[in-house]
Write a protein that binds this DNA or RNA. Sequence first.
DNA 1: AACAGGGTCAACCGCTGTTGC
DNA 2: GGCAACAGCGGTTGACCCTGT
Length: 338
Amino acid sequence: MGKSACCDKNGLKKGPWTAEEDQKLMDYIQKHGHGKWRTLPKNAELKRCGKSCRLRWTNYLRPDIKRGKFSAEEEEAIIQLHGVLGNKWSAIASRLPGRTDNEIKNFWNTHIKRRLLRMGIDPVTHKPRLDLLQLYSLLNSSLCNSSHQINISSLLGIGSMLNPNLATSLLSTQSNSHDISPGNFQEHQNDNSQVQNQFQSLQPNQIMDSSPQFLNETQLLQANLEQISTSQTNFNCLNSLQSLWQETGKSANMGESLMPNCGYNEMSNQAMMKCSFENISNLGLNSSLLSTPSSSTTPLQSSSTTYVNGGTEDERDSYCSNIMMFDIPSALDVNGLL
DNA sequence: AACAGGGTCAACCGCTGTTGC
DNA sequence: GGCAACAGCGGTTGACCCTGT
């Protein structure tokens, strides 16, 4: 596991490549082929380290590289593949002929990621932002269980940990009172139901229906199930809350109100995750996340034409939204979360 | 015209995995 | 098995470009 020493060699040039250097590198590789990157610079009379030469070749000079803007199909493939493979840029690149991992990574970070965030979708999990779900869960269970007296300032504190803007925005719909008690619950209910409705409309369509043609349904289902079974995100989130509540002495009530169907204190990791998904199922997420795809018309297909022929940012947003299969209600302002 | 701010992308850095001795 | 060299990967940086003021 020796650490590469090529980077700290003195006298080697760094920074952008000149046309002359490019030519030298191409000439050498055409004659001798690539490989032996360590010795290549010396043989090719380049004042670069081998690593730099390899990068220049693989990311720019290789003859099979397709340059230019990503097509709609490529973008679609990237999103789908990222959902399955995560940040495995080279694996994604190997399925997109002519595109380099660096190019795809840059495209993801500068275009797709931002777009997903703008739509309220977590670019890592490809699901609605967990802070939205968690806060909704918290609110939902609290408001529906009037026997628990919830201190809104505590909620705000927790919400702020998750996302201060969202918490503030949501809770601003409450009246001036900072406590929701059985006595004043009714008078808050109208306002709260508005908030609930906003979240309850966060229902995904059938995620699996957006499968690209090169991934069959079984593969996608398996991939998604693996993703779900290995995902620690929900658990971690809940665990953080659990720790917080325990530290602040609010564990029992708050824990129960968050996950009323679970034995909160004895909860194992699995159970925590299960409960987490049960809460998500309140949003209508569960069935679509875990169900086998039906043979219904795919939203992807139906929207593809519009997207491909379109090309404005809004149209792409709409298209992405269909790929991700989550409709963010317009009434819910997620811009402040970005 | 000058400047600021944001977006883009080539290149670098640090780390891990693989291979050969 | 241990070590070193090498290849490759993903995250980050910084120069350049574009747009708005």
